[in-house]
Design a protein around this nucleic acid. Structure first.
Lengths: 219, 219
DNA sequence: TAGATTGTTAATCGATTAACAATC
DNA sequence: TAGATTGTTAATCGATTAACAATC
């Protein structure tokens, strides 16, 4: 019996953070033309327990079939829907420096079902140029652009010193729903805007911790 | 009484992942010339519980003082040491594309106590150029460079298709201790090499989930 | 049908929070 | 000393794993 989909049940952050990984593995399986997979096999592949996979998936409904496993295509579609990858969200990159360029050039957005529309910068040298087919506009036109176009997500890759100011501007004068924040600055935006902070340096430090600990144990 | 520092106690990943955040806040407090802080005040600042802070810190020793709180400078130093930021680890960037350039240009390494030494790439157009004072060398010289210089960390920012090959090369022919892997590819390296995988797209997807969920609840 | 594998409940494990004695 | 705040133990909470009845 599948879980009542009407009742709003609180999904833990731990589960949500694992979903994109399922998404990646299923995408891979799909590209290999796999039709079905059991929780046990997927578990071995992903190096997690089959129990966890079944628990995670059952937060959102019964996508499998007893005695059969999961239909790869169906499961991929469901997880895409859950994550919002089928919503055709649109994004702009605010700050077309190195990092902005890197993100625009990569397939990150496309691979995850987000449509990148444009970049914005203050630097005249990049305004008017294209990155991976995406135009770069003047920062002065940011508000106007957001008024006249649907923009769901702003990727914040401006310098630290500009972060707070641009964050406020986005919150106050546009209708964006989420900010992907690479500035390392704590943004002060209203509740209704989602924020994902990326602190790359934090990851570098845990790598250092790992290296240090390993060497202490071994050496 | 402080915890026995000789006995090797398993520190949970949850704690370790929080350490870089403590490091950032303490660095900030230090720059503001704050001399002391209580777990309660730090907790309010970081939006966590004071209990958690005291528990986390006591995994590594008693750095505070009853009735006083924590000495900011001391605590910062201790956490730096724990994380290995005082080890003067050295790093190279393998793959001097947009992302490699972005990381080289940012203060990420310096801010976390890692010394970036050079970049490597196959593209003749970037070989010989400098990024933020760091030279870019030919990929052909990578092994030789690692033999003749101390390199602790390799930052892997090569294209997906090169990831496995370069990962193997680093594991087999160099003495690097850790890989900061941005390629999105699962690396197959021996146990003694630490790996930190960065899946930027995963974060983008959880942002999308957040946006979608918020809009479902509100709308 | 028999075998396989899910969905789901119960058991375990670990992490977070609360409480307070120790002590500066 | 009295007040403050830690270090640490105990209580709670949540997440993971195990188990198995349901069922394809």
């Amino acid at each position: 019996m599948r879980q009542d989909e009407n009742r709003q049940i609180k999904i833990s952050g731990a589960v949500i953070n694992r979903l994109p990984r399922y998404y990646r593995y299923l995408k891979q399986l799909l590209s290999e033309k796999r039709l079905r997979i059991s929780s046990l096999e997927l578990a071995r592949l992903m190096k997690v327990t089959a129990s966890q996979i079944r628990q995670d998936l059952n937060c959102f409904g019964g996508f499998g079939q007893q005695g059969y496993g999961y239909n790869v295509k169906l499961l991929y579609t469901k997880i895409s829907e859950i994550l919002g990858a089928t919503e055709d969200y649109t994004a702009i990159i605010v700050g077309a420096g190195n990092l902005g360029h890197a993100l625009a050039a990569a397939a990150t957005f496309k691979n995850r079902g987000v449509r990148l529309k444009a970049l914005f910068d203050v630097n005249p040298a990049v305004i008017g140029t294209e990155v991976n087919g995406h135009p770069t506009y003047s920062m002065d036109t940011l508000e106007e652009y957001c008024r006249e176009n649907t923009v769901d997500i702003a990727v914040l890759t401006v310098p630290k010193l500009e972060a707070v100011k641009v964050g406020r501007l986005l919150a106050a004068n546009t209708n964006i729903k989420g900010i992907w924040n690479f500035t390392g600055i704590e943004l002060d935006v209203p509740e209704n805007i989602s924020v994902q902070n990326v602190h790359l340096g934090d990851k570098l430090m845990t790598l250092c911790y790992d290296i240090k600990t390993k060497n202490e144990v071994l050496g």
